[in-house]
Simulated scan of single mutants.
Amino acid sequence: MTAAAAGGARATRRVVVEADGGARGNPGPAGYGAVVRDADSGEVLAERSESIGVATNNVAEYRGLIAGLEAAEEVGAGSVDVRMDSKLVVEQMAGRWQIKHPGLRPLAAQAAGLVRRFGTVTYTWIPRERNRHADALANAAMDLAAGKAPATDRVARAHEVAAQGSTAGSSWEPRPASTATRLLLVRHGETEHTALRRYSGRGDVPLSERGRAQARATAARLAGLAPSVAAVVTSPLSRCTATARLLAEALGDPPVVTEGDLVECDFGEWEGRTFAEVRERWPREMDAWLASPEVAPPGGESFVQVGTRVSRAVAGLLATYPGETVVVVSHVSPLKIALRDALAAGDAFLHRLYLDPAGLSILDSWPDGGVAVRTVNDTAHLAAL
């Protein structure tokens, strides 16, 4: 190939950059991952992954974008389609959102400088389920930053997950249920706040009498569905732990395990208020919150932050209980996010799905990364209450 021909190939090569980043906490031990693929064949041309010490999720996401663009330049890309599950980075780099945080401006400027080296760059938001390769690399880097495992082990696992994700979910071929890890997702029973349509986040509101009756009805339903349960894993808040204990009693007393990552979203200043009160007092903040998972209630937690820990919790369950059945007792927000990710749905799903108190959803996951959502918000067992 002549030098001119080589230059022409560089100018016309189309690539996809998949990038992600995150932190164990926010801020916390952080890392990023980036993958460059040929746009036509899907072949992986380059990978990047690095632990970056203590940083925020957004900083790590921008670092992943920068690493992906640098790698795209190295493989001779002329046209780049950036795909990320960070709505904030995609919207800011596309020029639709302002960059208000001063700590992100230098990173955005660095990314913009790299963008000018290509003929065209586009930005596309994708659900986390479709960003598994970069997500796995980022998680490997985060684990390394937190000192959880040798780098070789974590990167090997990241490649294993990425390989699974490249083919899983694209086939209708039936998989045997016996090899799946089954998660029986249960929302806690009703509380006084539930009945009054009040925001219940980190406030420790106990089950009402009706909520306890709902939990017992759910326990009877699960006893018929799951003859063998490895564990009942629950949010630490009492409305969940009380539900979990009633379920465990009906299931032969499997261990009840508390998992902090399953706790409800922190609704900040909205805690304990009715939906109508929040709409009246914080109309602009509520509109922004409904429009973007990156936005948190005043003094609270965004759905992006909740999603980070829910993904971590689900991954931990799949690693700890392979091929077994686990009951997961949690709240509306974490359960919606788990179902959104399993269905590879968009963020609008979070505001369109309704989950009743003591409603049951069933999620199967296979070792090859395949996922099947079998039931969503089943409440037949509550009909007699």
Results as ranks from 00 to 15, higher is better:
P334T: 01
R279C: 02
W289V: 07
G272T: 06
L317C: 05
P293K: 02
L317F: 04
A338G: 01
R281K: 14
V314K: 00
Q305F: 05
T325H: 09
E301C: 11
R309N: 10
L335Y: 02
V310R: 04
I337Q: 01
S311I: 02
V328G: 07
A315T: 12
G268T: 09
G307K: 06
W282N: 03
R281D: 12
G316Q: 08
L290I: 06
L339W: 08
E280C: 03
A313V: 12
H331V: 04
L318D: 07
E280Q: 13
A315D: 15
F303C: 10
G307R: 13
E271T: 08
L335P: 00
A296L: 12
A291T: 07
H331N: 07
F303I: 05
A288T: 11
T325K: 04
A319R: 15
R273N: 06
L335D: 00
L317M: 02
V310L: 06
V329E: 08
P283R: 14
G307I: 04
R273L: 14
G299H: 05
R284T: 14
E285T: 09
A315P: 02
P293N: 04
T325V: 05
T274P: 08
R340T: 02
M286N: 10
D287C: 03
E277M: 09
S302P: 12
T325I: 03
H331P: 08
T320Q: 13
Y321N: 02
F275M: 11
F303S: 10
V306C: 11
W289H: 10
P334L: 03
R309S: 11
H331E: 02
S330K: 06
E271V: 07
R340E: 04
V329M: 01
F303V: 02
T274C: 09
I337D: 00
F303L: 15
E301R: 10
V295H: 09
E285R: 09
A291V: 10
K336P: 05
P293Y: 01
V314Q: 01
G307E: 11
E294F: 05
